[in-house]
């Protein structure tokens, strides 16, 4: 199977993730879309690693996974506390950070 197809898939997943981040209001869904974008990137890394025949991309993929895991911990904690105080998980409700 042609490895370039994986790159198309990665692009598709990234686009879906980005679209989700931009158009969805629910913080959990936005969060999942961010994860989708990260994994699309991971897929691209691994594919390029395969294409070029070295391991650099795979190493980066692992790094991304570790960072994503840490980010999930923090992000979920923020979302939970936000939900507790405002009884809503809509990102548009948390719009106080402006002049």
């Amino acid at each position: 199977m042609n490895p370039v197809n994986y790159l198309y898939l990665a692009g598709l997943l990234f686009t879906i993730g980005a679209t989700g981040v931009l158009i969805r209001r629910n913080a959990i869904v936005v969060f999942m879309c961010v994860e989708l974008m990260l994994n699309a990137c991971n897929l691209a890394f691994v594919t390029f690693s395969r294409l070029h025949g070295n391991l650099d991309g795979q190493v980066f993929a692992f790094f991304t996974m570790v960072v994503a895991a840490a980010e999930v911990v923090v992000g979920l904690a923020i979302i939970v506390s936000l939900f507790r105080t405002r009884h809503s998980a809509s990102v548009d409700d948390a719009s106080l950070m402006k002049l």
Partner: peptide
């Protein structure tokens, strides 16, 4: 220019993208 800072996370995301 201030109008761009509207507090909506998603509009910031648009600018980032």
């Amino acid at each position: 220019l201030r109008r761009f800072q509207n507090g909506f996370a998603r509009s910031y995301a648009v600018s980032m993208f």
